[in-house]
């Protein structure tokens, strides 16, 4: 019998982040699968308000605990520490976002729990009945399985890697609440949202840019993307420099995306980035170096500079889309 299921109320907990419905849904789906495997129930701890409890139930939650009183990471971690002490979840999943990482890391340190950061998948080890988290290693060319020996097994999961499951028919989830004590240790003066984090996740065509596209070329790149109805994504180095917002970072420490077509432009093709587009239906790379690593991660490779190759490629794709749309029936 899997470890923990003997307790009778094996709990798989999910931490939901304010405003992040997509990531919450992915985590709840994974939690429901885990709970099914260990004979447990899913409890989601949500900032209030997030979304109707019935929706969370359809996504996989058997119980909804609303947090009240604040959402600063340090304060939420302190409140969760008390909640975890009381409920002793078998596992706790959180989004690998800047907020989720801080809450999870603080909570794990406070409680002494094992935490796997930036997991791309979770499952149950059939032998031990423990949770296994899969995490990219060695630049993304391997996945390492990591387990925790602590009472609560924690993981942050990179958005976009977990499958989105169809809504299930479910009983309305049980409701509870959790009071967060606001300490005011961090005083928030101003919040700027520079980007819609959902736009990239929803795009059918994505142009991924690396250091081969310099800041002065972004207007051109944006025009090409607009012509295609595409969104821009980027490597870590690009978002580190602030040429595109952090929400555009694709890869192990960013997010995973699954567009119909990913155009890799001006990037070398490091596994840590390319692993983030494994769900793309097709990948087309443009690089002037015929030996560039990106071609090993692509379906088709055009050996040319992107300044030369991308405009005719975009025109051809636009023409193709037009002819598909005008086809009768």
């Amino acid at each position: 019998m899997p470890d923990g299921s003997a307790r009778g109320s094996t709990l798989v907990a999910v931490l939901a982040e304010p405003k992040r419905l997509g990531a919450t849904r992915e985590l709840l789906g994974a939690a429901a699968v885990l709970a099914g495997q260990v004979g447990g129930r899913v409890c989601v701890v949500v900032p209030s308000p997030l979304v109707a409890p019935a929706t969370l139930g359809a996504w996989g939650a058997d119980e909804v605990v609303e947090m009240r009183g604040g959402s600063l990471a340090g304060d939420v971690a302190a409140a969760l520490a008390g909640w975890v002490e009381l409920r002793v979840p078998w596992a706790l999943l959180a989004p690998a976002s800047s907020w989720g990482r801080e809450v999870a890391a603080r909570l794990a340190a406070h409680r002494g729990e094992g935490l796997v950061g930036d997991a791309v998948g979770v499952g149950v080890d059939p032998g031990s009945g423990r949770m296994v988290s899969w995490k990219p290693a060695f630049g993304g060319s391997f996945l390492a399985s990591i387990t925790s020996s602590s009472p609560t097994q924690m993981a942050t999961v990179v958005p976009g890697f977990l499958p989105v499951l169809a809504p299930r028919r479910s009983q309305p989830p049980g409701l509870g609440s959790l009071q967060v004590q606001s300490t005011d240790r961090v005083r928030l003066l101003r919040v700027e949202h520079a980007d819609d984090p959902g736009a990239l996740a929803a795009a059918r065509i994505v142009i991924g840019v690396g250091m081969g596209v310099v800041p002065g070329e972004y207007p051109t790149m944006c025009e090409l993307a607009a012509a295609l109805g595409a969104e821009l994504a980027a490597t870590r180095k690009v978002t580190d420099r602030g040429w595109l917002p952090r929400s555009r970072q694709v890869g192990v420490t960013g997010r995973s995306i699954s567009p119909a077509l990913y155009l890799a432009v001006g990037l070398s093709g490091k596994p840590n980035h390319m692993i983030g587009v494994r769900g793309a239906r097709a990948v087309l790379a443009v690089n002037s170096d015929p030996d560039a690593a990106v071609f090993a991660w692509s379906d088709a490779g055009i050996v040319a500079g992107w300044r030369e190759a991308l405009p005719p490629l975009v025109s051809a794709l636009v023409g193709l889309a037009g002819s598909v749309q005008s086809r009768p029936g």
């Binding site: 094992g114 290693a137 060319s141 391997f142 399985s145 692993i275 071609f295 692509s298 490779g301 050996v303």
Partner: peptide
């Protein structure tokens, strides 16, 4: 350390890896 690293599996690419050459218009 409450975490343990276990088995590794390769996370390779399963793409077609067709790489072209020649004039850009033809490659496109």
């Amino acid at each position: 350390s409450p975490t343990r690293v276990g088995a590794l599996r390769e996370a390779g690419s399963d793409r077609l890896c067709r790489v072209f050459a020649g004039p850009v218009a033809e490659q496109v």
